[in-house]
């Protein structure tokens, strides 16, 4: 028992109990896969791909890409200054209220934000984009604020010592240090925003997500196949670009 204490055994039993409970509530049952044939039947309907819709769907996926990019990028632009007000070491008296405000906004699910903006500005990608901006601004503010708090204090002291004004000191001593991590967070949020814009498509937010939803509901599985393929391509391309940019910035 060199590595373990009795405390760990109790913890282990607790985790097992939690798993049993979760299996129960989720009706998790491997035996249900005995009807695997259904799955094969279903997937066989996807072939051959309905390539005639490719141009229209390509256009729709570009709309999705635009929503995700604009939503996450404007979110980042908003988050950069806000994060300075949400980090303990730079916020001054605003810290508490900004943090509370941010966690309030973050707690609203994107789909609820989407539904809210849809009723205000009408259905379409605009409402979805606004929802993504609001959500990402709050998420990125918090993430960047945490990077600011964890940044090396040395350069901040040096900027104080040369007599720089506090704003300049904070900007120059903190942002060059955390920039690669900021970009890393940003690209991850960009990727998440693509998935979010798909979800928002389901409630009328436009783009390839809405198309996917419509094709599914009308049993056009060979078109669904095209939609899914396009979505996978977008996600993979954005992931690839993100890692390249991060490498370049390091």
């Amino acid at each position: 028992m060199a590595w373990f204490k009795w405390k760990h055994l109790i913890l282990f039993l607790l985790v097992v109990a939690l798993m049993v409970w979760s299996i129960n509530v989720t009706e998790f049952d491997i035996r249900k896969f005995s009807q695997f044939n259904n799955m094969i039947d279903f997937l066989s309907n996807w072939f051959p791909f309905n390539t005639s819709v490719l141009p229209t769907m390509l256009k729709a996926s570009l709309v999705t890409l635009g929503m995700a990019f604009l939503g996450s990028f404007v979110g980042l632009l908003v988050a950069l200054p806000v994060s300075l007000l949400a980090a303990k070491n730079t916020a001054g008296p605003f810290y508490g209220s900004v943090r509370i405000g941010l966690s309030f906004v973050r707690s609203i699910p994107e789909i609820v934000l989407g539904l809210m903006f849809l009723t205000i500005v009408g259905p379409g990608p605009f409402a979805a984009t606004i929802a993504i901006i609001v959500h990402n601004a709050s998420v990125l503010s918090k993430l960047i604020a945490e990077l600011i708090e964890a940044a090396d204090k040395g350069p901040q002291e040096a900027m104080k010592a040369v007599g720089a004004r506090p704003l300049i000191g904070a900007l120059f001593s903190v942002f060059p240090q955390i920039w690669p991590n900021v970009l890393s967070h940003y690209f991850y949020r960009f990727e998440v925003a693509i998935r979010t814009s798909l979800m928002l498509g389901l409630v009328g937010g436009g783009g390839i997500g809405q198309q996917l939803f419509v094709h599914f509901k009308t049993f056009q599985y060979s078109t669904v196949a095209v939609d899914v393929m396009l979505i996978m391509i977008i996600v993979i391309v954005v992931d690839f670009l993100g890692s390249r940019v991060r490498q370049y910035v390091m």
Binding site: P155, V162, A164
Partner: peptide, 29 residues
């Protein structure tokens, strides 16, 4: 402080900036 140059043990330079850019920060005050 503007007329008092300080040198630190761990130099406290701003990483990822160049030599010249770091020297420019000495003019900030």
């Amino acid at each position: 402080r503007q007329k008092m140059g300080m040198i630190f043990q761990h130099h406290q330079l701003i990483p990822r900036l160049t030599v010249l850019q770091n020297v420019y920060t000495g003019l900030f005050g």
